[in-house]
Every structure is written in structure tokens, then in C-alpha cells.
Design a binder for these strands. Structure first.
Lengths: 338, 338
DNA sequence: AATTTTCTCCCAAACGTTTTCGTTAACAGA
DNA sequence: TCTGTTAACGAAAACGTTTGGGAGAAAATT
């Protein structure tokens, strides 16, 4: 019993036309009850299922959505995928995933591959390189082709499309405000380079929080890191200043800072309070647990998928930007409020 | 400029037949140079790309591979996906991901969806439920249909197909041997319930290591956990016994144990040495760093994709099982060798 | 001049569906 | 007997490709 059975084979076997088989399977009253039952029984016996590719070609709908992300071994992106997949699955869509591995070229190539009929719409988070180069022609192209596109997290204002983001600035502002309110006077920042949109926004939130509380900024206590792999060396100098609080824009920076601090004999949170960003596994299982700004990846993914599918099915023309709320999750890496 | 341009449109525009356009674009010498150049220029101008769906239908090859995993917010699975994606991408394949979320029914439904022509082959890791129910009809069905299938990690002997696994038993054996050799006398085990294949195998490795070193087994120091969410309550009783070593079958169990130990005033590794399984982010950034058995997810994914694509393209009939080596990564959660 | 070869090019089938529009035959009404 | 209606089914087009087999005309051979 090799290969799937087709309408044609059934029609030949039962000595009726292909169209009769198709209609019979749809239980059309156009076909006599007798024939219908015969066809349906046969189809069931051979476990007939319509071929998706043929359907896609006919309907010009693939029921696939394409997702392009820089990386997947990454708690945030993985949870976004999870959210996308759940929403998509519920609506009868499949998810095709391409990894750009932070390379502009791969991002472009992947988009072009998928844009040639494989999918009905895109969900994408840009690579750092794309954000640096500011080259968005590939995005504009698919939009021009009439293919819906939703961007999340690493977005870009120049492109008009649906977007899902968290309020990075406010998340950072809240985190830093917490540090200030528990009594920190010298707060360090560990961020990414500025062309990464989320890094820039979180830095802005950091600065604004300090300003609003009349705390002057110590430029030496602001570290911007390009390469996450050897962030240790970049972070270490921070402890040459006498700081009592650290805001890091991701979990790894935060934990690395905590580890260095401990090695230098500083206690957490008594001597230094630390707040991170992204509530992943690391924050939860670190010791002490890391106080962190939670960005609900699952929800972001769900929203993105929902917006995309709506665009695919309704073709409406207005572009929305959905802002998913962040929440400060207080654990033991920050002093408790007195 | 909406929608993609087709051969038909080009042919109409240039007043030649569709087949002439197709052949001209393939630079067939059958077509006069003049016509070829005209067609190619036009195609380039309008950025013509063949429609993947039409190609799939024609060639009866989708160049898609389907991956079904229980969960994606999970370091190991995410890295397997990453490995699959890289290998697939290199060979010109796309990856369609479905999450079974540990549900047998979703696994079956997803397989049926994809099996109807959407993909050329499967890579799958079974849900716990499937392993418990021992119902593999959906797997056998796709195999009978002639669709290649590769299983990884959570596999099953009853199904004949290509497989990629790590040597769970040996990994566990090595880990426990390390504990014994650094002087642990009372070693506890934190495992999963037995129907999960990897949990069972790692438990076997644990037992065998003890036996080979003539250490008797204390059944009370063996904990089998069903639900990872509230593993804390299950693990806590372990410390009612005087243990000096712990082998946990995953990172979370290990870290949870470490946290509980610390709360009870036990020092790590001085009082208790802990070894985990899976070298994820948690192990790396925990403090102290967790000694762990590394299972190279990336490599597993690559191997699985490689085997699958070979089956897709060569249709050979022999089934192999590839065993990817584990490696014990020693960090600070275990005493150093004296 | 008649035949064959060569060069261009095009038709049509095929992949597996769905759906519109016939077509045929039986039967009723006039 | 003729027209109209209805039930049951089938042919064909369409989605966008690729490709084997022609076809027509010019060039070359006999």
C-alpha cells in the first residue's frame, strides 16, 4: 500500500468520473445517495485525503505561515514560536520556520524562498545586521507583492505593516525605578549596541528613569556589548566603580554580572541589586532568583499570528501596532522594600 | 505591482507560448538566442520566480520536511531544531514545525495534516503520552505510505525507521561513575517516570554504575517525577536521607535540588555533589556551574536531517540508528578529584 | 525538383483538486 | 408528439509548472 490514493484512482476503480468522486465525497446532493455511499466507503477504506499541494494551487492559499527569526536556541524566540504555533494550529495553519542566524543575507534568501508561493504571510523579527544596515528592500518587496507581513520585537519604523512589540522603554523604566525605590544610588547599565532597537529603547528607559528621579548619569557605568559570547570581559570593569544596582537588558548579562559580583565578594542583593530583562528559565532557576522584566513571548507570538491570519483572510488595509505589556517580576536579586 | 508574475503572463506579454518562456528561462538551446534574451530580460525586470506550489505539484517533491516535537521552549529541542534547520537549509529544504505539546492526539493530527502532501519526510520525537500508550499506528501509517521518517531522542523500538539518539545509559553511567570516583557514597537519583524512554535508560545507567562499583542501591533515594512543574515537593524528601551525591536526569531537577540543598544549609559541592543531564543555559549560568552530561542537540538535529534527506533523495531501504556521543562537562557542582 | 535535415518554436499532457457548465435520459404535462 | 423539467453524472477549465513530441519553415542533400 504505497503512496496516497487520488481522486483519479478512485474514479477509475469505481468507474465514475473524477468530478463525481469529488462531489460524492463532499456529500453533494447532486450525486445519488447510492453513488455517494459507494464512493465514501471506498475512500474511507483507502483512507483518502485530499492532497494539500493541489489544494494550495487551486485555492491560491497555502495555509502556511512563514516565520523568520534570528535564532531559536533562545528562550524568548522559542516562546514566541510556541505562541505562533498554537494560534496558527488553532486556525488550521502550519508554521514554516527559517533561521536567519543574525545574517542579513540569510534573512533575504529565506524571505525570497518562502515568498514564492510557499506561504500566505510572514512573521519576522529582524537580524541585528539588518537593523544596522538599514536595508529593508526585501521587506518592502513582499509587501508590494501583496503578502501580509507582521514584525515583532526587532521592528523598524520605516516599514508600514502590522507590528507586535513590548514597551521596552517602559519596561526598563519600571525596572530602574524599582532599583531606585529600594535605595540604589549608583546604578550601572549593561546594554547592547545601539543599533539593536530593543537595546536602544531599554537604554532610553534607563536614562529617563534616572532623570525623573534626579540621579545623574555616570557614563562609565554604562556598558554596551556587541557580542554576547564573551560578555564577561566587557562586564567586569563595571565593578571598578562602586555601584549598588545593575540593570541588564537580558538574562545572560544579568547572571554574568551576578557571578562576577560574587567572585569579587559582593553579596546579592545586600551589596548589589540586579534586575534583568526577559523572564526565561535562567531568571527563574538562578540563585538568587533574578528580578526581571517579563516579556510575554507566548502572547507576542499569539498576537502576531492572530494579526497575520486576520490580514490573510480579510485583506484589510490598516496597520496596527500592538503593544504587549511587560511586568516586573520581583525575586531575590533585589533588596526588598523596607 | 501586486502579486507575482507567472509564465502565462510573460508569455501573453511577449506573445510567445508558455513553454517557450519556460525553456527560454532555462536557457534551453531549443529557443533562439534572441527569444531567450528577450524573455530573460523581461523576467528579470518583473522579478519572475517560479511558484513553489506549482513546482511541488509537478515534481511531487515539496522540499519541505516536517518536524514534530513535544515542546519548543526547551533548550534541547530548540537546539535540535536549530541543527535540523541548518542542515535542511543547506540542502534547499524548508522546515515545517508542529508542536504536539506532549499530547498524543495532537501528534496524530499534526502528522496527518502534514502527511497529505505538505512534506517529503518526517523528523519526530514522541510525546510522553505516546510512549505511555504505546500506540504507534500513525507512525506506521506514514511509513506504509512510503514517506521517510526519522525519530530522535524519544524513540521506540517497535517502529522500523532511521533513528538518532544519544547513549542515555552510558551518559548516565559516566555521570554516576564521576560521582563515585570523587568519593560519593550515598548517591540519590532524580529521574522521570519509567515510560519516558530517556528517563528509563538513564535510570538503568545509574543502577549499573552503582552495581559495577559495588554500591548497594537505596530505593528511598530514587525519585521518579511525572510532572516537572511542581518537582520541588517531590525532590525535597530526598534530603531526609544523608546523601552526598545527586544525579538528576535534567537540568531543572538538578538546579531545584541544588536550591533545596542550599536552603537546608548544605554546601555544594562540599557536602553534596550534583550532576545533571543536558548541557543547556541553566547548567552554564548556574552558580556553581552544574556538572552535566552534554547531549549535543545541534548534532542530533543535523544527523537526523541528513539521514532524512538521504532517504528522501535515494529511497534506500536500510534503517540505521545513529548514536551521538555524550560528554561529561565538569563544572563546580561536583568536588574536584583529589 | 523532391526529399531530408536542421532549426525554431509551440501544443498539450501531466501533477490533484474544485467547480461551472453541459449532457443525457427519464418522465410529466400539453 | 412535442416541449419542459429534473435527476445523475461527466467534461473541461483553472491553478503554474515542465517537457516530450510534434509542426512549420528554411536549409541542405540527393
Amino acid at each position: 500500500m504505497k503512496g496516497k490514493i487520488t481522486l483519479k484512482q478512485i474514479s477509475k476503480e469505481l468507474d465514475v468520473s473524477i468530478s463525481t468522486v469529488s462531489k460524492a465525497l463532499k456529500n453533494s446532493t447532486e450525486i445519488s445517495l447510492e453513488t455517494r455511499e459507494k464512493v465514501q466507503a471506498f475512500a474511507k477504506l483507502y483512507n483518502y485525503r485530499p492532497n494539500n499541494i493541489a489544494l494550495s494551487l487551486k485555492n491560491r492559499k497555502t495555509k502556511n505561515i512563514g516565520v523568520i527569526i534570528p535564532e531559536i536556541v533562545h528562550h524568548f524566540f522559542a516562546s514566541v514560536i510556541s505562541g505562533i504555533e498554537h494560534e496558527a494550529n488553532e486556525k488550521g495553519y502550519n508554521v514554516i520556520i527559517c533561521l536567519s542566524t543574525e545574517s542579513f543575507d540569510k534573512e533575504v534568501i529565506n524571505m525570497e524562498m518562502l515568498a514564492n508561493g510557499s506561504i500566505d504571510g510572514f512573521i519576522i523579527s529582524l537580524t541585528k545586521e539588518t537593523q544596522m544596515l538599514k536595508d529593508y528592500h526585501h521587506l518592502q518587496e513582499v509587501i508590494n507583492q501583496g503578502m501580509p507581513l507582521v514584525m515583532f520585537d526587532r521592528i523598524v519604523d520605516e516599514i508600514k505593516c502590522d507590528k507586535v512589540v513590548i514597551d521596552d522603554k517602559k519596561g526598563a523604566y519600571d525596572a530602574v525605578t524599582e532599583l531606585i525605590e529600594i535605595g540604589c544610588k549608583n546604578i550601572g547599565l549593561i546594554s547592547t549596541v545601539d543599533y539593536v532597537s530593543v537595546g536602544r529603547l531599554r537604554t532610553e528607559g534607563f536614562l529617563e528613569a534616572l532623570k525623573d528621579h534626579n540621579i545623574s548619569v555616570n557614563q562609565d557605568a554604562i556598558i554596551k556589548i556587541e557580542d554576547i559570547e564573551n560578555c564577561r570581559e566587557n562586564i567586569a570593569p563595571l565593578f571598578d566603580h562602586k555601584i549598588d544596582g545593575i540593570f541588564a537588558v537580558n538574562e545572560i548579562f544579568a547572571l554574568t554580572a551576578m557571578n562576577i559580583a560574587r567572585e569579587r565578594g559582593l553579596r546579592i542583593p545586600e551589596d548589589v541589586s540586579v534586575v534583568g530583562f526577559t523572564d526565561g528559565e535562567l531568571s527563574k532557576y538562578a540563585s538568587p532568583g533574578l528580578t526581571t522584566v517579563s516579556q510575554n513571548g507566548l502572547l507576542i507570538g499569539q498576537e502576531a499570528a492572530r494579526m497575520l491570519i486576520e490580514k490573510i483572510e480579510d485583506e484589510s488595509e490598516d496597520y496596527k501596532t500592538k503593544i504587549v505589556k511587560t511586568k516586573l517580576i520581583v525575586r531575590k536579586s533585589t533588596k526588598s522594600r523596607s
